[in-house]
Design a protein around this nucleic acid. Structure first.
Lengths: 196, 196
DNA sequence: TGTACATCAGTGAACGCGCGTTCACTGATGTAC
DNA sequence: TGTACATCAGTGAACGCGCGTTCACTGATGTAC
């Protein structure tokens, strides 16, 4: 064969990697396959040797990016920084300013809601895993309370990052991030004391 | 003149109304001007008699939709349901399932972050007004604490609605919404007890 | 050892389509004289 | 009262462009005999 063993797999991985970055940076709709393939050092036609359609790529990109999120949480816990460390990274100006390397839920949740069922199902499965993972690393409360807190933490993280990114005023954006950190840490520290 | 006095203004309002709905339903990128104008009962060319560009329409649509949000908050407070009533409406399955009539921040925040400065500035100004409005209707805490709580409430509302919309599992989605209501109401009821 | 063929990652032109925007034109009305 | 012109909301074709997808082809390699 002309190409090394593993060459095609490496190319596929390269396309996927570039795609996950570009999708998060500009949104799925703004990424064209021709430009994506050029950035991968190939021509447009080669795309369909690796993926069945753009939507298939979107599914894989979302899956990969949400597995990345899980790895980040685990890395933070393993490093001793705990969930708090993850929260501080997540709501940092650095994360806000580099969406291409960041959370795919914050970048694409609204767009995912408008995608076909298969894509939404992948997203759903992986988000459920993230929620479960956050719940596992909470210390306060019963299992039900931890699940509940995990949801609050995750939605608050996503909402805070999104508003901080959309807002065009650095001071306000920084304030929103800092306030988000304080609120999430408070949620983590205290059991929810359920009324329901 | 061929047309009634006020005819053009009415047409403009009609285009704007349809656009705010379509933008929230499908995202800005998915809305084409030709289709929009057809839905308004006109042909594509007429658009530029009313708006300078698609982006100018986006700015006005975002502004109008965020003023709508403010009106909803005020209406809920005026009706005696208070902020809690607004929160329950915001995180209701009905709101989740009808994005076209709902919160523009939840529908478009990620997309706004990628739009030109002018659009982001409009968004920023109006979001700041919403935060201030929420703060005014909080009862617990100092003014600083109320501002802080308002931010947490708003970002939590937006994040919760988005994840609930993206998720493809009705039970999980409902659970996320219900959990969001409980958490937001808890935030509203208790002063944040700032650590910073 | 030499020749014919199979394999297969990638090429690049072409497809039909919809996009935002421009612009010469239409036609019903109001105004001027 | 009748005629010429100005106004102006809207028409609809055209512009250049990029989209996702298809497909006949290339060319370097491995395999068979």
């Amino acid at each position: 064969m002309r190409y090394d063993k593993g060459h095609k797999e490496a190319t596929r991985r390269r396309i996927l990697e570039i795609a996950t970055r570009q999708f998060r940076e500009g949104g799925v709709a703004a990424v064209g396959l021709a430009g994506l393939m050029t950035d991968a050092g190939l021509t447009n036609g080669a795309f369909y040797g690796h993926f069945g359609s753009k939507e298939a790529l979107v599914r894989e990109a979302i899956e990969a990016a949400l597995e990345d999120s899980q790895r980040k949480i685990e890395a933070s816990v393993a490093s001793g920084a705990g969930l708090s460390g993850f929260v501080r990274d997540y709501l940092s100006p650095r994360h806000r300013d580099s969406p291409g390397k960041g959370c795919v839920a914050a970048a694409l949740a609204a767009e995912v809601a408008r995608h076909p069922a298969g894509t939404r199902t992948v997203f759903t499965t992986k988000v459920a895993e993230v929620l479960s993972l956050i719940g596992q690393h909470l210390t306060a409360g019963s299992p039900e309370e931890r699940r509940s807190t995990a949801m609050s933490v995750y939605t608050l993280l996503v909402g805070t990052l999104q508003i901080a990114r959309a807002v065009n005023d650095r001071l306000l954006s920084d304030e929103i991030l800092a306030n988000g950190v304080a609120t999430v840490l408070r949620l983590i520290a205290t059991a929810p004391n359920h009324a329901v």
